[in-house]
Design a protein around this nucleic acid. Structure first.
Length: 538
RNA sequence: GGCCACGUGGCGGAGUGGUGACGCAACGGUCUGCAAAACCGUGUACCCCGGUUCAAUUCCGGGCGUGGCCUCCA
């Protein structure tokens, strides 16, 4: 299987294995991670999910031990500093302590959010603060080679020192200057020169350097971390399309200049933007949605991380995506329909919940190998589902494995199946997903010591005849003990009474029972095998 | 103002120079006492105007619309 990926730098699909220097025993990917000063929003979720799928594909193609994935955490940043100054003043602590507190808490939240979306942890998640000496060394090298200059406490990259500056954004220096709308700092030689190092005052976190106490510029953080963990040239560099300029352009300039012209990445990948209900997502428009919001409940519904993930993968990663309730709802429907045969054939029992990967269907691999064709992948899943629904156990197995591979079927969900949550016969896949979403929320509540939210969720579970058991940070849902009076028993009794009436051909009575349940929002289904199941009316 | 994407049926969303992916919804059918579910089946879609071509939704040019970048931003 050859992997082809669209390279933003050359504007064409490249076959990874044919690129000079590619080594299948050492495949390296760098993706720009979050700046940790606030909750991650669903726009942030897109690259994380997209590149997680790529990471999984690379592990499958080349072996997990041969793939290194770095996703950094930016914990040096002026937005963070601004917030740190506020917190420091309010709590009477140093700015450095405040900065550390804010970034640690936000990074933890980020990890939880991303895990809920079914993403594997990257091989390395370096923090900028751990690499300041590397950054200083890189800046010194740039000054020494004439690509950078110190001025007025700052160190700036000299864009005129690199003739091909602008090659990623496909803009010449003249075009950039023509379009620029920013005031030019007086110490800059060229208008487009960007900061590698800037001075910090007493109220701003800073590190000692040859140019005085200061802090690195944003772009150099990624260049230094990438080089430290992946070497001068690596295979794939990813991120959102909005980072293409200036961030990635500047990374290229710095890294290539510091590394004797060696290219930074063999392939540059950029995911498209996300809108909410057709509008740009912004706090001022009031349509700003964080990952956390969605997992806790959005538009009066709890959404499982798997549903969000599927909704994100329905659109090809380079296309713009419109985030809407309708798409989420459809994703939920599709995912639950896929789970039906998996449950019926007890496919999950074949999986090892501790195994992070499993062998997917070959058509899935083939679709993904053509520039991450997730829409085509979903088509494959549908056709497997169709075959499985017709009774093809092999197809059900392949579907299950593929969903597992794609991160759409999580080990925890497998555990839930194994725990028999769905085996009682009166829980549908639809509900199972909802239960699972509750379990995920519960996990979040636990991690945040949010007792109120936890109690609220436990009550919601109780209404569904479930209770939560906690084992080493994992949440496992278990059916309530038999003997307790709960809704499920009432429904079961009603179903039994109705089936008795049906047997006696007293359809008037049986229909009345069904109507009574319907009035309570319970829909009955008489299955082909003679059993009767119920679900909550949609 | 400069640069760049995108515009496909009721909805989501692929793809292609010439027999209408795929899903959701809708409609018809099969099955079951009836429903529901499940299964089977059903669609004269490619923003507008020119051009190239035997043939364009697909290529080229122009227009309109939406969005992004040029400033922190996934």
């Amino acid at each position: 299987m050859t992997l082809r990926l669209y390279d933003t730098l050359t504007k064409q699909k490249r076959t990874l294995e044919e690129l000079p220097g590619f080594n299948r025993n050492n495949v390296r990917m760098y993706v720009c991670g979050p700046t940790v000063y606030d909750y991650a929003h669903i726009g942030n979720a897109r690259p994380v999910i997209v590149f997680d799928v790529l990471y999984r594909l690379l592990r499958h193609l080349y072996g997990a031990e041969h793939v290194t994935y770095v996703r950094n955490i930016t914990d040096i940043d002026d937005k963070i500093n601004a917030r740190a100054a506020e917190v420091a003043a309010a709590k009477g602590m140093t700015v450095e302590a405040a900065r550390a507190e804010i970034t640690a808490a936000t990074a933890k939240q980020y990890d939880e959010d991303v895990a809920a979306l079914g993403c594997l942890p990257p091989t390395h998640a370096p923090r900028a603060t751990q690499y300041v000496p590397r950054m200083i060394a890189m800046i010194e090298a740039l000054v020494a080679s004439g690509h950078a200059y110190a001025a007025d406490g700052h160190v700036l990259y000299d864009v005129s020192s690199k003739p091909d500056y602008g090659k990623l954004a496909r803009r010449t220096l003249d075009e950039m200057i023509a379009g620029a709308r920013v005031e030019v700092a007086p110490y800059k030689k060229n208008q487009m020169d960007f900061v590698l190092w800037k001075p910090s005052d007493a109220l701003t976190p800073g590190w000692d350097s040859p140019w005085g106490r200061g802090r690195p510029g944003w772009h150099v953080e990624c260049s230094a971390m990438g080089a430290a963990l992946l070497g001068e040239t690596f295979d794939i560099h990813g991120g959102g399309i909005d980072l293409m300029f200036p961030h990635h352009e500047n990374e290229i300039a710095q890294s290539e200049s510091a590394h004797r012209g060696h290219p930074l990445a063999r392939v540059w990948m950029h995911n498209g933007f996300l809108q909410v209900e057709g509008e740009k997502m912004s706090k001022s428009l009031g349509n700003f949605v964080t990952i956390r919001d969605l997992l806790r409940g959005w538009r009066d519904q709890a959404w499982s991380g798997s549903v969000l993930r599927l909704a994100m993968l329905k659109t090809h990663y380079r296309q713009p995506i419109n985030w809407s309730l309708r798409t989420l709802d459809e994703s939920k429907r599709e995912l639950s329909s896929w789970l039906a045969p998996i449950e019926r054939f007890r496919i999950c029992e074949e999986f090892d919940p501790n195994c992070s990967t499993t062998v997917p269907n070959k058509d899935v691999v083939s679709a993904l190998s053509d520039d991450l064709g997730t829409p085509e992948t979903i088509t494959v899943l549908h056709s497997l589902h169709r075959a499985a629904s017709r009774g093809d156990r092999q197809a059900a197995r392949s579907l299950g494995r593929s969903l597992f591979f794609l991160g759409l079927l999580k080990p925890e969900l497998v555990s839930a199946y194994k725990q028999g949550v769905s085996a009682s016969g009166d829980v549908t896949d639809q509900e199972l997903l909802e239960n699972f979403a509750l379990a995920e929320q519960l996990k979040t509540a636990l991690l945040n010591n949010d007792e109120e939210f936890k109690t609220q969720l436990e009550q919601a579970l109780e209404k569904r005849n479930l209770k939560a058991a906690y084992h080493q940070g994992a949440v496992i849902l278990e059916p309530l003990q038999i003997g307790q009076v709960h809704k499920g028993d009432e429904i079961r009794e009603a179903i039994e009474a109705r089936n008795a009436a049906r047997k006696a051909k007293d359809f008037k009575k049986s229909d009345r029972i069904r109507d009574e349940l319907l009035a309570k929002g319970i829909v009955l289904k008489d299955n082909a095998d003679g059993t009767t199941t119920w679900e909550v009316k949609r």
